[in-house]
Amino acid sequence: MKKHKVTYYYDALCGWCYGFSPVIEKIYHKYKDMIDFEVVSGGLFLGDRVGAINDIAPYIKAGAYKTVEERTGTKFGEKFINESLEHNTMVLNSLPPAIALCVVKENYPEKEMAFAAMLHKAIYVDGVNPDDIANFSNYAQKLDINLDDFNTKIRDPKYVKIAKEEFATVASDGVRGYPATLLKNGEDRILLSNGYVDFEVLDHKLNQLI
């Protein structure tokens, strides 16, 4: 156990988290030998917020994804824009990707950060429907995660419970937006970022604190 730990509050369906993904990956690779990292899913689209993308989040098609592109330089994929978004075929539901991530976190912890980023790619580049958890199997396999094991575990109610506990943890931690990062050092908890920040900003702040 390392002295410091960075908690990354995230949602696989958060467009700004998708834009932030290259930043946190770069931070992770720079500091992973000094700091423990964890990804915690927030549950952005649950309950009555689950539904077709243009019905639940019309602001995305109205231009929000372009704002993310302009600010972060991260591009959304043609399949997402021209199929999922244009034809309103994607169902926003944060629970299935959170379950998949919980499976990876518990059983393949060294692949946690990579799989979190892979979920963004699946949804916002390849236009995969997040409402069907089976859609994430191919992405797990790309990280050399045992496919049979992954497919069995994503159907285990245990991971539904764990995912929902994560949502509750985020709420109790007082996180009000994503992406957010928090540095923990014993009892000290320092908010590093809340909302998108560039690598240089986060790197400077983290470097001063460790």
Rank of each mutant, 00 (worst) to 15 (best):
D132A: 15
K121D: 10
Y65S: 10
T89M: 07
N129T: 05
M90W: 07
K142I: 12
G77V: 00
F115Y: 01
Q141P: 04
N93R: 02
V125H: 12
I145D: 12
A140K: 06
F150T: 08
L119K: 09
V103R: 06
Y59S: 04
T72K: 00
F150M: 15
F115M: 11
S137A: 15
F80D: 01
P109H: 01
E112R: 14
A64G: 03
E86H: 06
K158D: 11
I123R: 09
I99W: 08
P109E: 07
K161R: 09
A122F: 06
D132C: 14
A98D: 02
K161N: 11
F136T: 07
N82R: 12
F136M: 05
G127V: 06
V91C: 00
C102L: 01
L44H: 07
A114T: 03
T72C: 00
V50F: 05
N54I: 08
P58Y: 02
N82V: 05
E106G: 05
V128S: 08
Y139G: 12
S137R: 11
E69H: 09
R71G: 04
Y159P: 13
A140C: 08
D149H: 14
E83V: 04
A62I: 02
G63Y: 01
Y108N: 14
N151S: 10
D55N: 14
I99Y: 09
D126V: 02
K142C: 10
G47S: 01
D55M: 09
R49W: 05
I81K: 01
D148L: 10
N146T: 12
T152G: 13
E70D: 13
H120D: 10
A100G: 06
F150P: 04
S84I: 06
N135L: 06
K121S: 04
Y124Q: 13
T67Y: 01
N129H: 11
V50R: 11
L147K: 15
G42H: 04
F136L: 07
K105D: 02
P109Y: 00
V104H: 03
D148K: 14
N129M: 07
S94V: 09
K105E: 09
E38N: 06
I56V: 12
Q141K: 15
F76P: 03
L46I: 14
T152I: 14
I56K: 09
I53D: 02
I81Y: 01
M113W: 10
V91F: 00
Y59A: 05
E38Q: 07
Y59W: 09
K158Y: 15
F80L: 09
Q141C: 08
K66T: 10
V91N: 06
K66C: 04
V39T: 05
K158H: 12
S41P: 00
N151Y: 02
A116T: 04
V160W: 05
K153S: 13
N88R: 12
A134F: 13
N107A: 10
K111L: 12
G42A: 05
T74D: 00
